[in-house]
Each structure stands twice: as structure tokens, then as C-alpha cells.
């Protein structure tokens, strides 16, 4: 007999998924949302998130990796372009914007990179921050800082899910709340 684990089920736009979970130290298990590999769920979530894009937004900004297919689909459906911040320096980058991000997934601090040709596409533009999951708000804040350093103005913060509580008072919009641990 296998012991039944508690499960988190989400239903977005008619698509239902049982979320996998990962063990996270002494906190128990953390439910994970996977857009990578799941084009059906990605499309359904993007369709529901369309109305959350603030009016006047000219470009979407996201960060690798799990939110990438979601940002692509949102861009495709809305007709707005998107830019994607990297978490590694690439050799072809020229004069990139470099921004340290606070502790993130599983407590690892990271550095965000946006190459100058991509940063140039944010200059003077109204930018909406797009994420898969907002938890502490640290990633959202780092992306906003990059948008501002590139000369853009942040119109709002969109995420598919919110997980746990944020100490930051950023104006998030999200579809559903997930438990921080199960």
C-alpha cells in the first residue's frame, strides 16, 4: 500500500491539473506549477490571464525558464511583444543590464541579465511583468528594477498563481492562490 499524499488540484479555463510537489527541507512539500512541457495548460492559463494585462501596456517582461512558454502564449494571444531576462551571462551579450535578485526558488540567490538590444525595446515603453508564480515578490521587484533601468515604466504585475504571503505591497494580479506547502 502506498500512502496517499495530499494533492493540490487546479482548474483553469476548463483544464484540470494535479500539481506535482517537491520536498522542501523541514517545511514539507511544496506544490509546483509546470508550464514547461504542458502546452494545453499553458494556453488555457494564458487565455484567462489576457484580461489581467493593464490597459496601455506595450511590452511584457518575464524571466527564464518556467514562465517562458506562458509569456510566449500571452504575447501570441495579446499581440504584445515580450522580452525575456536570462539568469546566465551569454558570450554574445553586449553591455547587458545586470541586476542581483534576492533569494529565490529553494533559497538560491541569482543574478539576472538582459542584453542591450533587448533592453532597448523597453525604453520609453509601458511594461507589464509576467510570472508563473509570485511568492515573495522578490523576482517581480527585480524585473521591475530592470524595466526601469532600461527606461521603461511598469504598468503592473501578472502571475498565473500566487503562493504564500508576500512582505512586499506590489499590486499583483493572479488567477488562483496556491498553498505554500502541503
Amino acid at each position: 500500500m502506498t500512502q496517499a499524499r495530499p494533492e493540490v488540484t487546479v482548474k483553469i479555463g476548463g483544464v484540470t491539473r494535479i500539481l506535482p510537489s517537491a520536498r522542501a527541507g523541514s517545511m514539507g512539500r511544496v506544490p509546483l506549477v509546470e508550464f514547461i512541457g504542458d502546452s494545453e495548460f499553458t494556453k488555457a492559463v494564458a487565455e484567462e490571464m489576457l484580461v489581467m494585462i493593464p490597459g496601455g501596456t506595450e511590452v511584457l517582461l518575464t524571466v527564464v525558464t518556467n514562465a517562458l512558454p506562458l509569456a510566449h502564449e500571452l504575447s501570441h494571444l495579446s499581440g504584445l511583444p515580450y522580452e525575456c531576462v536570462r539568469k546566465k551571462r551569454r558570450p554574445y551579450m553586449q553591455d547587458p543590464i545586470i541586476q542581483d535578485a534576492p533569494s529565490m526558488t529553494l533559497g538560491v540567490a541569482e543574478t539576472f541579465w538582459l542584453d542591450s538590444p533587448h533592453a532597448a525595446r523597453l525604453k520609453g515603453k509601458k511594461v507589464a511583468i509576467v510570472q508563473d508564480v509570485i511568492s515573495s515578490g522578490g523576482t517581480a521587484q527585480t524585473l521591475a528594477r530592470i524595466a526601469e533601468r532600461a527606461g521603461g515604466t511598469v504598468t503592473g504585475y501578472l502571475a498565473a498563481f500566487r503562493q504564500g504571503e508576500s512582505a512586499l505591497s506590489l499590486p499583483f494580479k493572479y488567477l488562483e492562490k496556491l498553498p505554500a506547502h502541503i
Binding site: I36, G37, S39, K43, V64, P69, H72, E73
Partner: peptide
């Protein structure tokens, strides 16, 4: 990952094959 990820997403969406 990472540059071809959106490409795989689109091929998957269009064909119904997982990636």
C-alpha cells in the same frame, strides 16, 4: 533549454504531442 523552449511549445500546441 532555453532558446528553443517556446518553439517546442508551439509545435506541441499545434500537434498535440507532449514535449
Amino acid at each position: 533549454e532555453v532558446k528553443a523552449l517556446s518553439l517546442a511549445h508551439v509545435i506541441s500546441r499545434e500537434t498535440g504531442k507532449p514535449y
